[in-house]
Simulated assay, not measured.
Amino acid sequence: MPLFTDAPKSLCFLRLSAIGDVCHAVAAVQAVQRHWPETKITWIIGKVEAQLLEGLEGIEFIIFDKKAGYAGMKAVWQQLKDRKFDALIHMQLALRASILTLGIKAKYKVGFNKQRAKEGQWLFTNKKIDDVTSEHVLDSFLSFAEYLGVPKQAPQWNMPIAQSDIDWVNQKIPTDQKVLVISPAASKDERNWVTERYAQFADHAMEQGYQVVLCGSPSEREVQLGEKISQHMKHQAINLIGQTNLKRLLAVLNRANIVLAPDSGPAHMAATQGTPVIGLYAHSNPKRTGPYLSLHLTASAYEECIFEQYGKPSSALSWGTRAKGQDLMQKIHLDTVIERFSAFTSAQPN
Protein backbone atom coordinates (compact mmCIF):
# COMPACT_ATOMS: atom_id res chain seq x y z
CA MET A 1 0.00 0.00 0.00
CA PRO A 2 1.30 3.47 -0.82
CA LEU A 3 1.77 5.88 2.07
CA PHE A 4 -0.81 8.29 0.60
CA THR A 5 -3.87 7.45 -1.49
CA ASP A 6 -4.82 11.14 -1.77
CA ALA A 7 -2.54 14.11 -2.32
CA PRO A 8 -0.75 15.08 0.91
CA LYS A 9 -0.96 18.76 1.89
CA SER A 10 2.78 19.18 2.48
CA LEU A 11 5.97 17.21 1.91
CA CYS A 12 9.51 18.05 2.96
CA PHE A 13 12.42 16.55 1.03
CA LEU A 14 15.86 16.44 2.59
CA ARG A 15 18.73 15.99 0.14
CA LEU A 16 21.60 18.32 0.88
CA SER A 17 24.34 17.23 -1.49
CA ALA A 18 26.14 16.43 -3.79
CA ILE A 19 25.43 17.98 -7.19
CA GLY A 20 24.94 14.64 -8.97
CA ASP A 21 22.65 13.25 -6.27
CA VAL A 22 20.67 16.48 -6.16
CA CYS A 23 20.10 16.11 -9.92
CA HIS A 24 18.77 12.59 -9.25
CA ALA A 25 16.54 13.95 -6.49
CA VAL A 26 15.04 16.57 -8.85
CA ALA A 27 13.60 13.74 -10.97
CA ALA A 28 11.87 12.26 -7.90
CA VAL A 29 10.58 15.60 -6.60
CA GLN A 30 9.23 16.63 -10.01
CA ALA A 31 7.52 13.23 -10.41
CA VAL A 32 5.65 14.02 -7.17
CA GLN A 33 4.79 17.51 -8.44
CA ARG A 34 3.35 16.17 -11.69
CA HIS A 35 1.17 13.63 -9.85
CA TRP A 36 0.09 15.93 -7.00
CA PRO A 37 0.35 19.51 -8.28
CA GLU A 38 -1.56 20.84 -5.26
CA THR A 39 0.92 19.44 -2.70
CA LYS A 40 3.15 22.05 -1.08
CA ILE A 41 6.79 21.00 -1.52
CA THR A 42 9.65 22.13 0.73
CA TRP A 43 13.25 21.03 0.06
CA ILE A 44 16.09 21.30 2.57
CA ILE A 45 19.27 21.60 0.52
CA GLY A 46 22.94 22.55 0.71
CA LYS A 47 24.14 26.06 0.00
CA VAL A 48 26.02 25.30 -3.25
CA GLU A 49 23.41 22.89 -4.58
CA ALA A 50 20.69 25.52 -4.06
CA GLN A 51 22.44 27.73 -6.63
CA LEU A 52 21.89 25.07 -9.31
CA LEU A 53 18.19 24.60 -8.48
CA GLU A 54 17.28 28.26 -8.08
CA GLY A 55 14.09 28.99 -10.01
CA LEU A 56 12.62 25.47 -9.89
CA GLU A 57 8.87 26.03 -9.96
CA GLY A 58 6.64 25.22 -6.99
CA ILE A 59 9.43 24.40 -4.53
CA GLU A 60 10.30 26.25 -1.33
CA PHE A 61 14.01 25.85 -0.60
CA ILE A 62 15.39 25.91 2.95
CA ILE A 63 19.17 26.24 2.80
CA PHE A 64 21.33 24.35 5.27
CA ASP A 65 24.86 25.70 5.59
CA LYS A 66 26.86 22.69 6.74
CA LYS A 67 29.92 24.86 7.43
CA ALA A 68 27.91 26.55 10.17
CA GLY A 69 27.63 23.23 12.02
CA TYR A 70 25.08 23.09 14.82
CA ALA A 71 24.21 26.77 14.33
CA GLY A 72 23.24 25.89 10.75
CA MET A 73 20.92 23.17 12.03
CA LYS A 74 19.31 25.53 14.53
CA ALA A 75 18.71 28.05 11.73
CA VAL A 76 16.77 25.41 9.75
CA TRP A 77 14.79 24.34 12.83
CA GLN A 78 13.93 27.96 13.58
CA GLN A 79 12.53 28.45 10.06
CA LEU A 80 10.34 25.36 10.39
CA LYS A 81 9.42 25.54 14.11
CA ASP A 82 5.73 26.28 13.52
CA ARG A 83 5.21 23.66 10.81
CA LYS A 84 4.45 19.97 10.65
CA PHE A 85 4.69 18.11 7.33
CA ASP A 86 2.61 15.14 6.24
CA ALA A 87 5.92 13.43 5.47
CA LEU A 88 9.65 14.15 5.60
CA ILE A 89 11.45 12.30 2.80
CA HIS A 90 14.95 11.69 4.14
CA MET A 91 17.16 10.95 1.09
CA GLN A 92 20.60 11.54 2.65
CA LEU A 93 22.55 8.83 4.45
CA ALA A 94 25.03 10.99 6.37
CA LEU A 95 24.63 11.11 10.15
CA ARG A 96 24.69 14.93 10.09
CA ALA A 97 21.58 14.93 7.86
CA SER A 98 19.84 12.47 10.18
CA ILE A 99 20.54 14.70 13.19
CA LEU A 100 19.08 17.60 11.19
CA THR A 101 15.79 15.67 10.88
CA LEU A 102 15.39 15.62 14.68
CA GLY A 103 14.19 19.23 14.70
CA ILE A 104 11.75 18.81 11.79
CA LYS A 105 8.19 17.81 12.62
CA ALA A 106 6.45 15.33 10.33
CA LYS A 107 3.81 12.61 10.71
CA TYR A 108 5.96 10.21 8.72
CA LYS A 109 9.73 10.25 8.33
CA VAL A 110 10.60 8.13 5.31
CA GLY A 111 14.10 6.73 4.82
CA PHE A 112 16.04 3.98 3.10
CA ASN A 113 15.47 0.32 3.84
CA LYS A 114 17.80 -0.94 6.57
CA GLN A 115 19.75 -2.99 3.99
CA ARG A 116 20.65 0.20 2.14
CA ALA A 117 20.78 2.72 5.00
CA LYS A 118 24.16 3.75 6.41
CA GLU A 119 25.34 5.64 9.50
CA GLY A 120 22.26 4.54 11.43
CA GLN A 121 19.79 6.37 9.17
CA TRP A 122 17.05 3.79 9.92
CA LEU A 123 17.05 4.92 13.56
CA PHE A 124 15.79 8.37 12.52
CA THR A 125 12.84 7.26 10.34
CA ASN A 126 9.51 5.57 11.06
CA LYS A 127 8.84 4.43 7.46
CA LYS A 128 11.26 2.67 5.10
CA ILE A 129 11.00 2.36 1.33
CA ASP A 130 10.80 -1.26 0.14
CA ASP A 131 13.44 -0.93 -2.56
CA VAL A 132 16.64 -2.92 -2.03
CA THR A 133 17.14 -4.09 -5.62
CA SER A 134 17.61 -0.93 -7.70
CA GLU A 135 21.17 -0.68 -8.94
CA HIS A 136 21.18 3.01 -9.87
CA VAL A 137 20.93 5.73 -7.22
CA LEU A 138 18.34 7.56 -9.36
CA ASP A 139 16.07 4.49 -9.38
CA SER A 140 16.34 4.27 -5.60
CA PHE A 141 15.36 7.95 -5.35
CA LEU A 142 12.38 7.37 -7.65
CA SER A 143 11.39 4.56 -5.26
CA PHE A 144 10.70 7.24 -2.63
CA ALA A 145 8.11 8.84 -4.94
CA GLU A 146 6.60 5.43 -5.65
CA TYR A 147 6.43 4.63 -1.92
CA LEU A 148 4.52 7.87 -1.33
CA GLY A 149 1.92 6.87 -3.94
CA VAL A 150 3.25 8.26 -7.24
CA PRO A 151 3.01 5.78 -10.15
CA LYS A 152 6.34 4.50 -11.43
CA GLN A 153 7.62 6.48 -14.43
CA ALA A 154 10.76 7.29 -16.38
CA PRO A 155 12.67 10.30 -14.98
CA GLN A 156 12.01 13.74 -16.41
CA TRP A 157 13.67 17.03 -15.56
CA ASN A 158 12.59 20.62 -15.94
CA MET A 159 15.64 22.72 -15.03
CA PRO A 160 15.19 26.42 -15.89
CA ILE A 161 18.00 28.16 -17.78
CA ALA A 162 17.94 31.96 -18.04
CA GLN A 163 18.06 33.54 -21.49
CA SER A 164 21.08 35.56 -20.34
CA ASP A 165 23.01 32.33 -19.74
CA ILE A 166 21.98 30.96 -23.15
CA ASP A 167 23.14 34.23 -24.75
CA TRP A 168 26.48 33.99 -22.94
CA VAL A 169 27.01 30.45 -24.22
CA ASN A 170 26.15 31.51 -27.78
CA GLN A 171 28.79 34.26 -27.56
CA LYS A 172 31.45 31.81 -26.38
CA ILE A 173 30.67 28.78 -28.55
CA PRO A 174 29.95 29.01 -32.31
CA THR A 175 26.30 28.19 -32.90
CA ASP A 176 26.94 26.44 -36.25
CA GLN A 177 29.22 23.68 -34.91
CA LYS A 178 28.76 20.32 -33.25
CA VAL A 179 30.08 20.56 -29.69
CA LEU A 180 31.90 18.12 -27.43
CA VAL A 181 32.17 19.38 -23.86
CA ILE A 182 34.94 17.88 -21.73
CA SER A 183 34.48 18.36 -17.98
CA PRO A 184 37.74 16.71 -16.90
CA ALA A 185 37.79 17.07 -13.11
CA ALA A 186 36.17 14.78 -10.57
CA SER A 187 35.96 15.72 -6.88
CA LYS A 188 39.24 13.83 -6.28
CA ASP A 189 42.18 13.91 -8.68
CA GLU A 190 42.56 10.12 -8.58
CA ARG A 191 39.18 9.87 -10.35
CA ASN A 192 40.32 12.08 -13.25
CA TRP A 193 41.32 10.41 -16.49
CA VAL A 194 44.90 10.68 -17.81
CA THR A 195 45.64 14.27 -18.93
CA GLU A 196 47.33 13.23 -22.19
CA ARG A 197 44.39 10.99 -23.10
CA TYR A 198 41.93 13.84 -22.57
CA ALA A 199 44.05 15.85 -25.03
CA GLN A 200 44.33 13.01 -27.56
CA PHE A 201 40.60 12.38 -27.46
CA ALA A 202 39.87 16.11 -27.81
CA ASP A 203 42.09 16.24 -30.92
CA HIS A 204 40.31 13.19 -32.34
CA ALA A 205 36.89 14.81 -31.82
CA MET A 206 38.04 18.05 -33.47
CA GLU A 207 39.27 16.04 -36.46
CA GLN A 208 35.74 14.59 -36.67
CA GLY A 209 34.31 18.12 -36.98
CA TYR A 210 33.45 18.82 -33.33
CA GLN A 211 34.29 22.00 -31.46
CA VAL A 212 35.79 20.98 -28.11
CA VAL A 213 34.91 23.03 -25.03
CA LEU A 214 36.63 22.51 -21.66
CA CYS A 215 34.61 23.40 -18.56
CA GLY A 216 35.08 23.30 -14.81
CA SER A 217 35.24 25.33 -11.64
CA PRO A 218 37.65 28.22 -10.88
CA SER A 219 39.60 26.07 -8.37
CA GLU A 220 43.34 26.13 -8.94
CA ARG A 221 43.57 22.38 -9.61
CA GLU A 222 40.84 22.51 -12.27
CA VAL A 223 42.34 25.57 -13.97
CA GLN A 224 45.75 23.85 -14.08
CA LEU A 225 44.20 20.64 -15.44
CA GLY A 226 42.55 22.59 -18.26
CA GLU A 227 45.81 24.33 -19.10
CA LYS A 228 47.70 21.02 -19.21
CA ILE A 229 45.10 19.45 -21.50
CA SER A 230 45.30 22.47 -23.83
CA GLN A 231 49.12 22.29 -23.87
CA HIS A 232 49.02 18.63 -24.93
CA MET A 233 46.52 19.27 -27.74
CA LYS A 234 47.44 19.80 -31.40
CA HIS A 235 44.21 21.75 -31.99
CA GLN A 236 42.67 24.70 -30.13
CA ALA A 237 39.86 23.98 -27.68
CA ILE A 238 37.62 26.66 -26.16
CA ASN A 239 38.62 26.76 -22.49
CA LEU A 240 35.78 27.95 -20.24
CA ILE A 241 37.20 26.50 -17.01
CA GLY A 242 36.64 29.02 -14.22
CA GLN A 243 34.22 31.14 -16.28
CA THR A 244 30.94 29.45 -15.38
CA ASN A 245 28.73 29.30 -12.32
CA LEU A 246 26.44 26.28 -11.97
CA LYS A 247 23.59 27.84 -13.98
CA ARG A 248 25.91 28.86 -16.79
CA LEU A 249 27.51 25.42 -16.77
CA LEU A 250 24.02 23.94 -17.17
CA ALA A 251 23.57 26.13 -20.25
CA VAL A 252 26.93 24.92 -21.65
CA LEU A 253 25.92 21.28 -21.10
CA ASN A 254 22.56 21.98 -22.74
CA ARG A 255 24.40 23.35 -25.79
CA ALA A 256 26.65 20.28 -26.08
CA ASN A 257 25.95 17.44 -28.48
CA ILE A 258 27.91 15.11 -26.22
CA VAL A 259 29.90 15.35 -22.96
CA LEU A 260 32.99 13.50 -21.72
CA ALA A 261 33.34 13.41 -17.92
CA PRO A 262 34.52 11.24 -15.04
CA ASP A 263 32.24 10.43 -12.08
CA SER A 264 31.23 14.01 -11.25
CA GLY A 265 28.35 16.46 -10.89
CA PRO A 266 28.52 17.80 -14.48
CA ALA A 267 27.95 14.27 -15.86
CA HIS A 268 24.58 14.19 -14.07
CA MET A 269 23.80 17.83 -14.86
CA ALA A 270 24.17 16.88 -18.54
CA ALA A 271 21.68 14.05 -18.03
CA THR A 272 19.07 16.57 -16.83
CA GLN A 273 19.47 18.29 -20.21
CA GLY A 274 19.09 15.08 -22.19
CA THR A 275 22.69 15.45 -23.38
CA PRO A 276 24.53 12.13 -23.96
CA VAL A 277 27.58 11.53 -21.74
CA ILE A 278 30.61 9.30 -22.14
CA GLY A 279 31.25 8.55 -18.47
CA LEU A 280 34.73 7.50 -17.32
CA TYR A 281 34.57 5.07 -14.38
CA ALA A 282 37.06 2.96 -12.42
CA HIS A 283 36.40 3.63 -8.71
CA SER A 284 32.60 3.46 -8.52
CA ASN A 285 30.08 1.28 -10.30
CA PRO A 286 28.63 3.08 -13.34
CA LYS A 287 25.51 0.91 -13.05
CA ARG A 288 24.98 2.68 -9.72
CA THR A 289 26.32 6.20 -10.33
CA GLY A 290 26.79 6.55 -14.09
CA PRO A 291 25.02 9.16 -16.27
CA TYR A 292 21.51 7.67 -16.16
CA LEU A 293 20.50 8.12 -19.80
CA SER A 294 23.91 7.15 -21.24
CA LEU A 295 25.01 4.00 -19.45
CA HIS A 296 25.57 2.33 -22.84
CA LEU A 297 28.28 4.91 -23.60
CA THR A 298 30.25 4.41 -20.37
CA ALA A 299 33.95 3.61 -20.61
CA SER A 300 34.54 1.60 -17.46
CA ALA A 301 37.39 -0.29 -15.81
CA TYR A 302 35.37 -0.74 -12.62
CA GLU A 303 34.65 -4.48 -12.89
CA GLU A 304 38.27 -5.19 -13.76
CA CYS A 305 39.47 -3.21 -10.73
CA ILE A 306 36.92 -4.80 -8.40
CA PHE A 307 37.88 -8.31 -9.49
CA GLU A 308 41.57 -7.54 -8.98
CA GLN A 309 40.91 -6.21 -5.47
CA TYR A 310 38.20 -8.56 -4.19
CA GLY A 311 38.55 -11.67 -6.36
CA LYS A 312 34.83 -11.60 -7.21
CA PRO A 313 32.47 -9.53 -9.42
CA SER A 314 30.65 -6.48 -8.04
CA SER A 315 27.36 -8.42 -8.11
CA ALA A 316 28.74 -10.59 -5.27
CA LEU A 317 29.66 -7.55 -3.15
CA SER A 318 27.62 -5.01 -1.17
CA TRP A 319 25.83 -2.20 -3.01
CA GLY A 320 28.13 0.77 -3.48
CA THR A 321 31.46 -1.06 -3.09
CA ARG A 322 34.26 1.14 -4.44
CA ALA A 323 37.60 0.19 -5.92
CA LYS A 324 40.57 1.90 -4.27
CA GLY A 325 43.82 3.19 -5.73
CA GLN A 326 45.60 6.15 -7.29
CA ASP A 327 46.12 4.82 -10.81
CA LEU A 328 42.89 2.99 -11.64
CA MET A 329 41.77 5.50 -14.29
CA GLN A 330 44.84 4.58 -16.38
CA LYS A 331 43.08 1.29 -17.13
CA ILE A 332 40.57 3.18 -19.32
CA HIS A 333 42.19 3.14 -22.76
CA LEU A 334 41.93 5.87 -25.37
CA ASP A 335 40.70 3.35 -27.95
CA THR A 336 37.76 2.43 -25.70
CA VAL A 337 36.65 6.05 -25.39
CA ILE A 338 37.03 6.62 -29.15
CA GLU A 339 34.86 3.51 -29.72
CA ARG A 340 32.12 4.96 -27.47
CA PHE A 341 32.34 8.27 -29.33
CA SER A 342 32.09 6.48 -32.69
CA ALA A 343 29.03 4.57 -31.45
CA PHE A 344 27.44 7.93 -30.62
CA THR A 345 28.38 9.69 -33.89
CA SER A 346 27.32 6.78 -36.09
CA ALA A 347 23.85 6.87 -34.51
CA GLN A 348 23.42 10.60 -35.29
CA PRO A 349 21.38 11.73 -38.32
CA ASN A 350 23.46 13.29 -41.09
Rank of each mutant, 00 (worst) to 15 (best):
H24Q: 05
M206V: 01
F341E: 02
H283W: 04
L102N: 08
N257Q: 11
A117K: 05
V181C: 15
I241Y: 07
I332F: 13
Y210S: 02
I229C: 13
E119L: 04
L240N: 08
S318H: 03
W122E: 14
H235S: 12
H283V: 00
N350C: 05
G265I: 00
K312E: 09
K81M: 02
I278L: 15
E220L: 13
H235W: 02
G20L: 02
A106F: 13
A7L: 05
D139K: 13
E196I: 04
E190C: 13
T272H: 09
P291W: 09
E54V: 01
D335Y: 03
A185M: 10
L3S: 05
Q79T: 02
V194S: 11
F85I: 02
D263P: 01
D189S: 15
I63K: 13
Q200G: 05
F141Y: 15
S230E: 10
L142D: 04
W193S: 14
Q309A: 12
T125M: 01
R116M: 09
L93M: 14
E57Y: 10
T195G: 08
R221K: 14
G72A: 03
G69Q: 02
S342T: 07
I241E: 07
V48R: 11
K66N: 11
I229F: 14
A199Y: 07
Q211E: 12
L16V: 01
T289L: 08
V179H: 07
E119S: 04
H283P: 02
I182F: 14
L214C: 05
G46A: 08
A106K: 11
K9C: 03
K178M: 12
K74E: 08
D203Q: 06
H90D: 09
A25H: 06
T125G: 00
A267M: 09
A299Y: 10
G242Q: 06
G279C: 06
L53V: 07
P262D: 05
G311M: 09
D335V: 07
I99R: 12
A117G: 10
N126A: 06
N192I: 06
I99W: 15
Y198N: 10
N257I: 00
I19K: 04
A27E: 04
S17H: 08
A316T: 01
E38H: 06
I241W: 05
V150P: 00
A186L: 06
I99E: 07
F112C: 09
A267G: 03
P266F: 06
